[in-house]
Design a protein around this nucleic acid. Sequence first.
RNA 1: GGUUCCAUAGCUCAACUGGAUAGAGCAACUGCCUUCUAAGCAGUAGGUUGAAGGUUCGAGUCCUUCUGGAAUCACCA
Length: 708
Amino acid sequence: METTLQNALKAAFEELFNHQVDEIELQPTRKEFEGAYTFVMFSFLKAVRQKPEELGQKLGDYLVQNLPEVSGYNVANKGFLNISLSEKVWIDAFAQMAKNENFGQLPAQNQKVMVEYSSPNTNKPLHLGHLRNNFLGYSVAKILEAAGYEVVKANLVNDRGVHICKSMLAYVKFGHGETPESSGTKGDHLIGKYYVEFDKRMKEQVKPILAQVAQGDFSLFTSAEQQNIVTYQTKIAKIQQSVEQEQKNLPALKGQLLASFDQDFQDLFNEWENSNLITSSTFKKHIDGATFGKKQAPLVKLIRKIIKLYNSIGKEEGNIKQLANNKTALMGEVTQMLQKWEAKDPDTIALWKKMNGWVYDGFNATYKAIGVDFDQMYYESETYLLGKEIIDDGLNQGLFYTKPDGSVWSKLPADVSPNDKLLLRSNGTSVYMTQDLGTADEKYKDHQIDKSIYVIGNEQDYHCVVLFQILKDLGRPYAKGLYHLSYGMVDLPTGKMKSREGTVIDADDLLLEVKKTAQDRTDALGKLEGMSDAEKEEIYRIISLGALKYTLLRVDPKKRMLFDKNESVDFQGDAGPFVQMNYVRTRSILRKAASLGIDTTKGWQVADLHPMESELIMLLQQYEQVIADAAGLVDPKMGYNPSLIAQYAYNLAKTYSQFFAECPILKTPDQSAESMERRKFRIALSTKTGEVIKKALGLLGIEVPERM
RNA sequence: GGUUCCAUAGCUCAACUGGAUAGAGCAACUGCCUUCUAAGCAGUAGGUUGAAGGUUCGAGUCCUUCUGGAAUCACCA
């Protein structure tokens, strides 16, 4: 229909004004105005030298005369041509849609796409951030399938390296042979416990080293490291100076303004000042959350500045700590263990396999619980040696070069990166980037994919840019199909999630909590009476997952989002359960219709439409377009975006809810044939809406219950 | 310091990529369950889109500057 209108408008321009138009853009008419499609005329006014009202009238008349489907038009706000379609168009469109079982499945693209997501570390359990990643990846895969692609879901598990050895070592030293069975702990959580344990022990060991450094004794470090430490310390000293500079202003401002703040603020301020101005996150939180008067602003601003400076010092100190960590006895043992692992020492490998097995059991349980799966697993333990032949390839092509110490580097265009990228250490071992290069080749070898989507957080934007650039420079055939679906971090009200500060929301815990809420709410409504416990459990599961997935997917993936455990998982309004509930209503209608003995298989005949009916049909008709948008068929930059589907599903559910409240479906005013036909039509409309809701939610990885 | 991203109602998010009177939900307030599932529907209130300039028929969206926030820039992964 849209293209018919576009062509007709093009023809109109040519016939009426002898003016060639390449592209006509139509948009759905806004709800407040009469019409189905809107043509924005502004850009054409000059070319055809017409006033907006005249042009609108001429084009409108032309459409009405030439297209039987167009029932009318209006020109609004000096430039918007709103085109109305006859009700018959909508009725026919719906009749066709209702027959189409494959509605929502776009024609085959004859292309293969790989979506890589999840990519966990085997040293700690999954948390909220992973959930966003998993839900996004799974949903994008479903959307691409609906858009006609063949999809391979891949998971690249980070199962080797220093961090894995940390938990292994901690387990050997402090584990006393504990197992998931003996401790009653899920495997991934058990390993996570030892990773934390390692960190704790290392912190103890690093203290004396740091004390030594503070006294100017760098004897433990190599000369290069010593240089770095000096650099860091110089930076710290410089920042320290700035702090002192700023601090000088503090007493005066304090004397002037502090009394104007509330008691909470004053208390926190005093505590902060007395603790030698050490960053107090509670104080910062208080400042960020509060509003201040204009007069108070200078003091607040100064405090902010000082806190920020202290944060910078913290970062620099962190760098020194990092170097010091490597000098601890524990880290020495870890390095030894890694070398043993790489040398395939039987005991080390056996331990590694045993512990990884536990983690995989744990992960698989969580994957199963959240309803995601994979077609292809990759393990870094198997891919970390890949990429070496790529090094040769790049050296031959003159894209890489070798430094005197034997390390290999990649040249990069200045606009991509000012620094060259290390690919091979001087000791000949490969880095993260090298592995990823190799894995990219491997993926292509395994599946001949046309497109490859990496679902990775935006903290790795730079890494992906460099990775893709190198592959492009190397002339890899799949390079143009690479796409980094860069999603924003999930923030908590307390700020960023940090495992060290214990502010991580664990995935398994969260699932349990949300399920409990779903159960309480469902039970309070009391609609599940007479069902078995197993049936109820299943419904709690579906609703809680729906609520959780919806909250994480309704936000534009690119944007960072805030997650408040107490408020974020909504069950009302713009939320998963609301959409699910409207599906349930359509099912309820069907059940009731069957019990009334209404034959829903036969067709129906209506001549006109209630406004809510046409609105529903219009929305239903947009479904396939929404899939195309969400899959990036129109514009890849806009695509890979489940939030478009979530928004659509919510709109459809909301519209159905209005229709449901306004239009009696089964109840008829009389027994006339017309009323009977109307009833059958509304049942069909209801059924189709339910189908589309189910399909749309399916693209988000959300299931629907039959009752709730 | 360089680069990139972000700032919209009290809160969480939208706004079809430059279009109409900036929309939803939550929270607050008013109505509506003897009738198809009220996790609902209808309504009220809530905005100088961080600030100031600019580009044009038209700016939340593009450009410049400023303010505030985040990420990143390793022989870590």
